[in-house]
Amino acid sequence: MSATPSRASDAMQAVLTAANSLILGKPREIRLSLTCLLARGHLLIEDLPGVGKTTLSQVLAKLLGLAFQRVQFTSDMLPADIIGVSVFERDRGVFRFHPGPVFSQVVLADEINRATPKTQSALLEAMEERQVTVEGETRLLPEPFFVIATQNPTHQIGTFPLPESQLDRFLLRLRLGYPDPAAERALLAGEDRRSLLNALTPSCQPEDLRAAQALVRGVHASAALIEYVQSIAAFTRAAPDWQSGLSPRAALGLLMAARAWAWLEGRDHVLPEDVQTVLPGIVGHRLRAVDESREVGAGETAATRIIESVALP
């Protein structure tokens, strides 16, 4: 079965519609998480427990028809618990590799900052390389491979905050936040979410996702737009508000996410508006304010400040 452009696009719109019917009042966040996936990036969701982080990732995996594994991170977890382990089989006298939960298309790493840095880095390396090496043997991870990590706000007790270098590997960071009153009323009145989730059927084929990802890569970014993205990166480096500016990887990610957003909006070219829309998710976890106690220049504030400081070329 071949995927045509319109087919891929329709499939993704269907995914969005279905997800919105299950997760109420969060269309923007759902669209952003799909954007992240289409840009082949990993997603970090940071929020309080119980606002629907896990549900969001499960819904996405189900609707896209992807294999889903959930790993609950704890402080006593070892890298092998994620990657897998070779076990000696006495009957046959050989070692056999038992793949860990990372060998899945969508991995939900729940409360990633509860694990020790060693375990965190095992997952994060797999995310970057899209492969793992166990006992000298390199094993490719499935395709597509998509990590959704959730993290509690770092000021909670018993957390190991992710270092900047690892945060940079997440393309977007989202905050879900509490639902608005209408959505919350609907949630309380409606059917049990778990049964709804179990009843969910995929809205698209794996080919559609692959096609969509390829199409996103083909979205046109004009010279003016590339100049705009570069000015944004340059501004974050020159401004005194942050400890360090955006890395080139972050700038690439910004452009890629903007492409994905533009494609979801049905355009074949990127507009500055697309860049501005995805910018809060890109900079929120990457820019660290010089004066962290004052929270100036963090998250949304940082994005607003950048947007309003960088003129369109």
Binding site: L271, P272, E273, Q276, I307, E308, S309, V310, A311, L312
Partner: peptide, 9 residues
Amino acid sequence: WQPWEGPLD
């Protein structure tokens, strides 16, 4: 028009 404002916005 703010110099940072996208055309559609």
